[in-house]
């Protein structure tokens, strides 16, 4: 499903080279729920960006869902991303569209037949417990609800891989618990999940395989 081999990433800030990842290697199998943890700046977001090919490594190979991302041509990126769901710390909901429209938007841009859109969007909203708030606008949602709406948008295409970058970063403990429960339910359906979080307690509470990043290196792979 996911395989990284000696992946390094160095950012150039003028003449200064800033290493973000150093020789990272790991494998994640189909259906696994993996937590990627580490302090801010440890390289979690950089690693996730490489996984959905928002960026390329400076060295090493990245393979996701059978695609070699380093060799991938730009024209192939869209097709690859259709198999991946991504959620971010800031939910990135479209403010002028309702929750339902935000979720349906993804299906519409991918050309899903109109008759299927409503049913699939409401399936996704039900899966995150938000079907009652379908007509609300993002500004009317709590942060937890907004994050659940983002999750519904990410899973509405039923992708085999879900990448979540600090989805609980802005939430209090109760709300974070709700999101984690939703993620567990999604994982139970067979979706491979990579959850990046700086909240060590959350990683421990999840009791899943945890990769710990420190200074751009994987220092622990346990569980």
């Amino acid at each position: 499903m996911i395989e990284l081999h000696r992946v390094s990433k160095v950012y150039s800030v003028g003449p200064v080279k800033v290493p973000a990842l150093r020789e990272v290697s790991f494998r994640i199998g189909k259906g696994e729920f993996v937590v990627l943890t580490g302090a801010s700046g440890a390289g979690k977001t950089t690693l996730l960006r490489l996984l959905y090919r928002d960026d390329l490594p400076s060295e090493g190979d990245v393979e996701v869902l059978g695609y070699g991302l380093v060799q991938m041509r730009r024209s192939q990126v869209a097709a690859f991303r259709r198999s991946i769901g991504v959620v971010f710390q800031d939910a990135k909901l479209l403010p002028v569209r309702t929750v339902y429209e935000n979720v349906a938007f993804v299906l519409r841009v991918l050309g899903t037949p109109r008759r299927d859109i409503t049913a699939r969007a409401f399936d996704a909203l039900r899966a995150v417990g938000l079907s009652a708030r379908a007509q609300a606008y993002p500004a009317q949602l709590s942060q937890g609800e907004a994050q659940r709406a983002a999750l519904a948008r990410a899973i509405v295409r039923r992708p085999p891989l879900l990448l979540a970058d600090e989805p609980t970063g802005n939430l209090d403990e109760a709300m974070a618990g709700e999101i984690v429960d939703v993620l567990k339910d999604i994982g139970a359906g067979g979706t491979t999940i990579v959850l990046a979080t700086h909240q060590a307690r959350l990683a421990v509470a999840l009791r899943r395989r945890t990769l710990t990043l420190e200074g751009g290196r994987i220092v622990k792979d346990e569980g």
Partner: peptide, 16 residues
Amino acid sequence: RHETEIMRLVGASEWT
């Protein structure tokens, strides 16, 4: 820009 970002993220074709 937000729509464009989401469209690219979910794999919309360049034409879309």
